[in-house]
């Protein structure tokens, strides 16, 4: 994962600072595929990386705000109820990739859900 803390600001919350995830990927062997009787080697590693980005945002004083350009095959993950991100349209500056943002409120819920119980 590669993140940036400069050059990008929130579109949801009037230009407030955020952590922008420039690159994030999880290798296929980290997925569980029942049909192949394969257990993911590091299941959920992508979610952990995303969680760390939200934590980084909080540590930077950005209150958990995160932005990213999802690849099309990953849209359902970021748009889903688990990540709670808001889609803000396709970005012509990034080859029309969809741009997603996690607001301060959504970030706090995400950290609250994931934090140690």
């Amino acid at each position: 994962m590669l993140t940036k803390t400069a050059s990008y600001v929130s579109r949801l919350e009037n230009g407030k600072p955020l952590v922008y995830i420039d690159y994030l990927e999880s290798a296929p062997w980290n997925w569980n595929v029942q049909e192949l009787q394969r257990k993911g080697e590091f299941r959920g590693v992508g979610s952990v990386l995303f969680y760390v980005a939200v934590l980084q945002s909080e540590q930077e004083g950005f209150h958990g705000r995160v932005g990213l350009h999802a690849l099309p095959q990953a849209e359902s993950f970021y748009a889903g109820k688990e990540c709670r991100m808001t889609k803000l349209g396709l970005d012509a500056n990034k080859q029309n990739l969809p741009y997603y943002e996690l607001s301060r409120k959504e970030a706090q819920e995400h950290l609250s859900d994931g934090g140690e119980k």
Partner: peptide, 15 residues
């Protein structure tokens, strides 16, 4: 959720 989506790829840089 990751297994269902099969990808978490974020790609500003990748693109």
């Amino acid at each position: 959720a990751e297994d269902l989506c099969t990808s978490v790829a974020v790609g500003g840089l990748a693109q």
